[in-house]
Design a protein around this nucleic acid. Sequence first.
DNA 1: CGTTGGCACTCTCTGATGTTGAGTGCCAGT
DNA 2: ACTGGCACTCAACATCAGAGAGTGCCAACG
Lengths: 343, 343
Amino acid sequence: MLNLRQQGVLRAIVQDYIRTAEPVGSRTISRKYSFALSPASIRMIMADLEDSGYVTQTHTSSGRVPTDKGYRLYVDNLMDRAALTPAEVEKIEQHVGPPATEMDDLLKEAGKLLSLLSPYVAVALAPGLNESHFERVEFVSLAPTRVLVILLTDSGLVHHKHVLIEEPIKQEDLDRIGRFLCDLLKGRTLREMRDVLLSQMADEKAQYDRMLNQAIQIGRQVLDMDAEADVFVTGAAHIADQPEFADVQKMKGLYQAFEDKSKLIWLLSECIRDNACRVVIGREIPIQEIQDLSVVAAPYRRGGQIVGVVGILGPTRMEYGHTVALVETTATMLSRSLSEHAA
Amino acid sequence: MLNLRQQGVLRAIVQDYIRTAEPVGSRTISRKYSFALSPASIRMIMADLEDSGYVTQTHTSSGRVPTDKGYRLYVDNLMDRAALTPAEVEKIEQHVGPPATEMDDLLKEAGKLLSLLSPYVAVALAPGLNESHFERVEFVSLAPTRVLVILLTDSGLVHHKHVLIEEPIKQEDLDRIGRFLCDLLKGRTLREMRDVLLSQMADEKAQYDRMLNQAIQIGRQVLDMDAEADVFVTGAAHIADQPEFADVQKMKGLYQAFEDKSKLIWLLSECIRDNACRVVIGREIPIQEIQDLSVVAAPYRRGGQIVGVVGILGPTRMEYGHTVALVETTATMLSRSLSEHAA
DNA sequence: CGTTGGCACTCTCTGATGTTGAGTGCCAGT
DNA sequence: ACTGGCACTCAACATCAGAGAGTGCCAACG
């Protein structure tokens, strides 16, 4: 596609633009980067790069700015992978290194960490109930017709919900129902549980079996609980420092997007399928409001299985090399920390 | 302090400034508000108001702008309490009206609601563990040395935490410990629980009683869980529409302040002592980063007892009348909704 | 004596204008 | 194939004048 010289120039343009946020001119390239070429020759190459869509100009006589396509090539082929400094590694180990059991706390910590070590916005996707496998259920009777249901999943999540039932029920009956539901549903995802429960309801004999009836009544209320994964956004204020968002209205748009958790969840859930760190650049992001950003995201595991995603949102003009290293390391440490007690 | 005419002019200044965000001149006052006075006379009065510190000028020949002191007088004595429109009341009823049990969901809903019905930022303070009274504890044995502790409080909160113990323990022992701790700690706040547990630890016989020992071991781990109240911030992007924060750096400062939950918790916890809606204006706020804002906050109850606070953060130039009505109504509905099931 | 019209003054805001400087594209020469 | 030279473009900045909104002060009026 591009010859070596063109690649070199593109690389220089991207790197310089990432540093300065200013359009890069031929003169800059020829001076600061060691091409044995005059500005005029660089201009030729730049014109080629522009024809192929890797760079653009903001106006007819300005320097060049990388396009999303340019960044893509840079990330895939041209970029140096930055190594983290010892200080950074240590910070990561301090924050998410120690074995932990409380998923939420640990993820919040990871978010803080990433937004501390990068000038961008950190995101962390917690495991969702929908994808987790049912492990166990416990009931706590609060009042004759009020029960606290506690749901445990294999991803280490604990969810609870208050449930109201029609007729009073004793703790021992609850225990029986618990054992029954556990046998019926163990190992299934929430989605599957829904199906099983619906088919049980359709079954005629359910009408007459009092316990089954109550079990289904409870199960139904539990299943329409908030099953979405949760996402934590940290360091959103960082983007105010990026010159591309110096305009208040643009910033507002981004903040609104950050508050709309469902879209972020969707975006990050896409990355959960990948095995390694993933970079999504600008228009490649399927969410309109944040198409001026890029995402660097890596999944983390608990006991071998991928359960969530941590990542960074920043301007497309982002220190990709450093950010990728940061996110990957954090995800790795997070996995280790979570798996320590997963037994 | 101020005579009636001065008060009238101050009121007109505040109202006009709230509407337009522009310094208001004598001419505007004399025309748009029905004072039978010429601009020149209004100017005299304005000069008096300035001497007393209720208004200022942005530059020597500009119109007047209210000071915090001016807003304070306005809120305390001059303001009309706006009635909510039927549409607004209906929205509130829809969002937080139906009786609910899940505290977090309901508070998030209340936040969304407030940021929907006002152009400002909504905050909602959930009950903290520190102030709640211990009601009941349940243990779920996950593995021989791993226990899930579930803590119930009278404010309707459910907190849980994974706990690791040194030697394996059976569910029936856990139940015994649960009953023991329940007797020991029932009705106390978390703070008191801490004291009780510490004094038990100091007790010599604890050394020899195996159960007591284990109970204390567990209790200690539970007590250093996150006991802070939680706060939800919704609609932060709204402030970008306020002309006073058109500057990106100011906006950044506010966003950072919003992310620092601990300070917000502190601020709102102050309001929890009040019985009714409270307005804190500008410099009256003890947090430097948000001293260009005002807070309107009202406590909500669960079964008669105040457990948390909902409120709105906006520029000092805020529609106080409307906002107060909004926050009060929301708090009332929230209380009703929470108390329905509180038995 | 309170109120008012008139007047000089101040300060911000806007739009026009010119200048500078960085950068480009093209071309002719090596 | 590369380069120096040149004309051209465009954003950014500073300067300037005029408009407009508003003030304070003063003298006049009922």
